[in-house]
Structures are given as structure tokens and as C-alpha cells.
Design a protein around this nucleic acid. Structure first.
Lengths: 238, 238
DNA sequence: CGCATAATTGATAATGGTCAACTAAGGTGG
DNA sequence: CCACCTTAGTTGACCATTATCAATTATGCG
């Protein structure tokens, strides 16, 4: 028996894809060189600055977008302006709504982001041809469902400090591979964090100060956070 | 051109399925008589009383269950016992986690329920053979994701009255087909409603009393609710 | 009919929100 | 390169909403 490769060989893989951080994960991880080359030709790489709206609620969707770098926030607003962030997408997540003609959320760049825009019909054709791809996209939707439900617990049952600790833990484990300690830039402003946690910016700020006073985190600058002991932060998540 | 039928003809459909309220919806709606007969033979109809645990968190899953009647609540608990209901399943929803070996939530009968238990491998074989079925199951997962996100807005950004009104509106539109008025039994106890809304039972009770005092709802008995004007209830949802 | 449980109501406390003043930080032009 | 200016974030004082604790009242079942 031959050694089994982890992923499809890179021989025919386009150079751009080889350098892409999302290459071996997400939807690209299940495609071979020829399929990637095909998709690459029909898609478009773009950079969007933090804050830019990517997809409006209730707007027709004509493209999917693969997140290559940065963080995208998905949010919903009530008529009177109250806003709730309902999800965060990191590389290599796929942005867009399979089998729907319109979005039920609005998407905006939380940090500066690099995207790979794939026209709706192109990706859907690829899905029809590759069961692995369709399966992968379905698995992402199921993972997003798990994450949404996990977050419902945070929103419904946790205190303000626990909410902030949970958010920091989420980002720390996403941005920094280290198991014990972490040191990272927050991809969201205080206002976005507040909208994600169902709090006000003042409360977010106070709880960050509290965690800092307790020695659970360090705040190097407004955006820069250090976590000397992830297990201790974990304990504050409720 | 011939008249197009809404669903597959009933000629070969098993009698039990013909009488099933979920017959033309959910996963059964995409199966023909032969497929239904096959699934029927390999599945088992059971009745479970309100309160009974159906599936524990982090337990291996060996069966799916189609909800035929009643309401199932999906919930998560924190170590210290705080609980959050993260989803409600009505007929003809499918209960279970596609492509996962263990559940991330626990499921319990909120009201008395009738279920159709389908062994995991049986349904997964059927999915592999019917793209329509796989598609249908994926669509349900996407709908559940939408519902979860919708509820995140309620949990994170709505006031106590708005939460209670939103819950009543959800149930009213599910249990009663009427467009203007509704009259229904609550499938959940006050404790379950509180766990769904991220409130205490006392607050739920107070807000129900408030809505009653405002004439938005009538409370015939603890479980029986009347809504003279759904549009007015809708206004209270924030 | 009585009992056990579920729900309501009231009094009080705590958590987080609001409004306002102040401070840090990052970007631009002199 | 630094000073200024704008914006984002922090902190404080006070208030509102919801939680907590306790007592009372329905309701549905045996």
C-alpha cells in the first residue's frame, strides 16, 4: 500500500492558489488542480477595507466570497437601529447563502479583508459536479449552526464579564495557534464587540478593564491583547 | 400539457404515511411511495411524554427522528446548571445531526410528541441514493441556521416584553394558520420559555401579565393563549 | 375534593445601561 | 518629525431593567 497523501498533489495547482492561506482548507481543500484553475479563472480577488459593506440584508446575491484573510462580520438590525452581530467568518470560510436568492443577514468587513469572489452560478455548477464540494459546503453550514447555538448560550445566559471573556477566548484560539498563551490584535472595534455580545461599548470596556485588573489579560494598546494563561481566561467564560 | 401535481402521487404510499401530518412536508415530501414504504419498514413510530429526554449532549447518535406531532426543544447547559434552549423543532422537522457521530445539544420533548425513529445508517443510505433528499436535509439545516441567527437578535438586543412577544408570535404563527387572530396552547412551560428567552420564569410571567393587561393577548388558562390581533402582537416584538 | 406543582405577584437587590466628561491613539499637514 | 485634531475608548455617577427571594394563588391530576 502506498503512503496516503493528506491533500491533492500541488503539481497542477495555480501559483496564486498555492500561496493562498485558504488553499488546503475550506472549499479549496477538496478541489484538485484542474478544478482550482477553472475556479480561479472565473473568480476575482479583491481587497476590502475594514468597515466596508460586503452584502446587504434582503439584497439579491450574485456572488459567493471565500475569505482569504481578515474577519467578516454578519449582522442583523431591528427597525429602530439596534444591531446584533450573528456570526464572524474567518479564513477560509465561504461567505454566501447556498440555494438562496437573497441574503438574510448583512455582511461587512470587520478588519481589512482579502476575498476571492466567485459568481453564484459558477460555484453552483461546481457543486453539482463535485459531491465532495457540496458536502464540504454543507458541513460548513452545519458548523455555523453549531457556532450560532453555542453563541445563543453566551447571549442568553452569561454575565457581561463571561461574555467578554468568551469573545476573547474565541478570538485568541482563532488568531493564535499556541495552546497556553496568546498575543493578538482584536479584529473588531469595541462597538462591534458590543453588538456581538449584546452589550454596550461602555460595558465591554469596563469588563476588559476588569479582566486586565484581575491579571487575566494584558491590554498593550486598544487593539492589542495578551493572554498569559488561556486556561485562566477559559475559567472566566462561565 | 397535463396538470402538474403538487407532490408525488399517493397510489403506492403506505397507509400510515398517508395519515401522517408530515407526509407532504419535510423529508417525506420528497420521497415516492416505494421509498416511503422502504423507510417505513426500517423505522419505528414512538410516542414520548412531555419532559422526556430524547438525546443527550455529547452522546453518540444512532438514530434520526422525524417529528410527527408536538414540539421538541434543543438545549445546552453550562457546568453550573444555567440552561439555554437553542432551538425548537416542530412537525415535520428532522431531529438529528447529519454527518456527525455525536450531538452538540440535548433534545427533550417539550410537549407530548410522536416521532418516527429512523436508524442513522438507513437515512444516510437513503440520502446517498436520493439527491433530492440530501438537498432537503441541507435546506433544513440552513433554515435552522437562519432561525438561530434570528433568535440571536432576540436574545442579544430585545427587552423582556419584546422577547416574550416574539416567542408568542413564533408559536402563534406555527400553531394556528389564521392570519389575523390566533388561539393556541403553549407547548412550553414557563421554565422552558424562560430558558428559551434568556430570562427568569418570574420575568416571563410578569411580561405575559403585562401583555394581557395591555389587551394584546388573552390568557384563558396558564397554557391557553388567545391573540385577538396578530399585527398588534407583531408590533410588540421590537 | 385535596394535594402537588406551576404560575403569579410583591419587595428588594444587583447588573448592566445611559449620559457625560475625560483620555489615549492614530493619522495628517505644517 | 512633531503638534494638532479627530475618533475610539475609558471611567464615573446615576438610573432602569431584570434577577432574586419570598409569599400567595391557580391549575390539573389522582
Amino acid at each position: 500500500m502506498q503512503t496516503v497523501r493528506q491533500t491533492v498533489p500541488d503539481s497542477n495547482v495555480p501559483a496564486l492558489c498555492q500561496r493562498c492561506p485558504a488553499r488546503h482548507q475550506g472549499i479549496c481543500g477538496v478541489l484538485d488542480g484542474a478544478q482550482l484553475a477553472q475556479l480561479l479563472k472565473l473568480s476575482r480577488r479583491v481587497r476590502r477595507p475594514a468597515g466596508e459593506e460586503l452584502m446587504a440584508d434582503a439584497m439579491p446575491i450574485s456572488t459567493y466570497a471565500n475569505v482569504r484573510r481578515g474577519v467578516v462580520k454578519l449582522s442583523k438590525i431591528l427597525e429602530d437601529g439596534r444591531q446584533q452581530v450573528v456570526g464572524l467568518q474567518f479564513a477560509p470560510d465561504l461567505l454566501g447563502r447556498p440555494f438562496a436568492t437573497e441574503s438574510r443577514v448583512s455582511a461587512a468587513a470587520a478588519s481589512d479583508v482579502d476575498l476571492c469572489l466567485i459568481p453564484k452560478n459558477v460555484l453552483e455548477t461546481a457543486m453539482a459536479q463535485s459531491a465532495r464540494l457540496e458536502r464540504r459546503i454543507m458541513l460548513q453550514a452545519l458548523r455555523e449552526l453549531d457556532e450560532a447555538r453555542e453563541w445563543m448560550v453566551t447571549l442568553g445566559r452569561k454575565t457581561a464579564v463571561e461574555k467578554v471573556a468568551s469573545f476573547l477566548y474565541l478570538i485568541a484560539t482563532h488568531e493564535d495557534a499556541n495552546e497556553e498563551r496568546a498575543d493578538f490584535d482584536l479584529p473588531l472595534s469595541r462597538a462591534d464587540i458590543a453588538d456581538f455580545l449584546g452589550l454596550t461599548i461602555e460595558t465591554v470596556s469596563r469588563q476588559l478593564s476588569r479582566l486586565k485588573a484581575d491579571g487575566v489579560i494584558g491590554i498593550a494598546s486598544h487593539r492589542r491583547i495578551t493572554v498569559p494563561d488561556l486556561a485562566r481566561l477559559r475559567l472566566r467564560c462561565g
